[in-house]
């Protein structure tokens, strides 16, 4: 009995430490007082200030466009890569995955500086350079989401489609792609979150005129902490939360069908 209560208290404490700061931040974003310790009543004025400021809104749009575009491009390239990797021999698959996984674990700051050095020489720093950078670090996530789906797929289905008269392209669109869809969706959303989340790499590869929400927050904070920042941070958190829920919905479907194919085998 006591053990059970203790367990619950322990879990409660862990969750409290994880989420209390974010909850405080969100609460403060609705605080009428500028103080960080006194509750001055409920207000939406920081949010309205945010939405009426063109520079904040620009950062917001840039963030969204960047997330959707970079995730989209990374999904297309990642899908092609996953298809290619599956067709390789076992040893080459290992080598290939080793290379594609390095960007996942590499320190962001190293990737950021390396990309910056590269772009300074070949590409003017601006929206394009940030986009290319985001596609680069998004791709491994897409590959990792699609590969298991491909592994679990019965390649005989593709041959059966060819056998029944389908050309290579028709067989791919009608038979393979529908089977891969859950993996493709979770890859896309995973990539979009990574893009929304990123600060370090964006900071190093963006040009002077370009800002995403995270770099905007950082530049503003340096001038002093304003309540608008609480509102902005809350919005960023909410965006990521929504996408995470989406990943869970599609991802669950993916893992469910993968489990099923494994059981059948």
């Amino acid at each position: 009995m006591i053990g059970k209560t203790l367990r619950k208290i322990y879990i409660g404490l862990v969750i409290l430490f994880m989420y209390a700061p974010i909850i405080v931040l969100i609460v403060l974003s609705f605080n009428n007082s500028r103080s960080r310790v006194v509750w001055g009543g409920f207000t939406l004025k920081w949010y309205s200030a945010l939405f009426s400021s063109s520079s904040y809104m620009n950062a917001f749009y840039t963030t969204i466009i960047l997330a959707v575009l970079s995730a989209g491009i990374a999904t297309v390239i990642g899908l092609a890569a996953a298809l290619g990797i599956t067709a390789m021999r076992k040893r080459n698959i290992q080598i290939m995955l080793f290379f594609t996984n390095i960007p996942l674990v590499n320190a962001d700051i190293v990737t950021g500086i390396a990309l910056m050095l590269w772009f300074v020489r070949f590409l003017p720093l601006g929206f394009m350079s940030v986009l290319v950078a985001h596609v680069t670090f998004n791709m491994p996530y897409v590959i990792l989401c699609i590969l298991p789906r491909l592994d679990a797929m019965d390649m005989h289905q593709f041959e059966a489609a060819r056998d029944l008269g389908a050309g290579i392209r028709y067989a791919f669109w009608k038979v393979m792609l529908p089977d891969l869809m859950p993996g493709i969706f979770s890859g896309f959303f995973m990539a979009a979150t990574m893009s929304l989340d990123d600060f370090v790499i964006t900071y190093f590869t963006k040009g002077p005129g370009v800002n995403t929400l995270s770099t905007k927050i950082y530049t503003e904070i340096r001038k002093g902490i304003k309540p608008e920042m609480y509102a902005l941070s809350s919005i960023l958190f909410l965006l990521v939360l929504i996408i995470l829920i989406l990943i869970n919905v599609t991802g669950n479907n993916a893992s469910r069908s993968i489990n099923k194919t494994i059981e059948e085998k």
């Binding site: 019965d154 005989h156 289905q157 041959e159 059966a160 489609a161 056998d163 029944l164 038979v175």
Partner: peptide
């Protein structure tokens, strides 16, 4: 036309 060992239904 082929009937595959593991059926290979879509």
């Amino acid at each position: 036309n082929t009937v595959f060992q593991k059926y290979a239904l879509f």
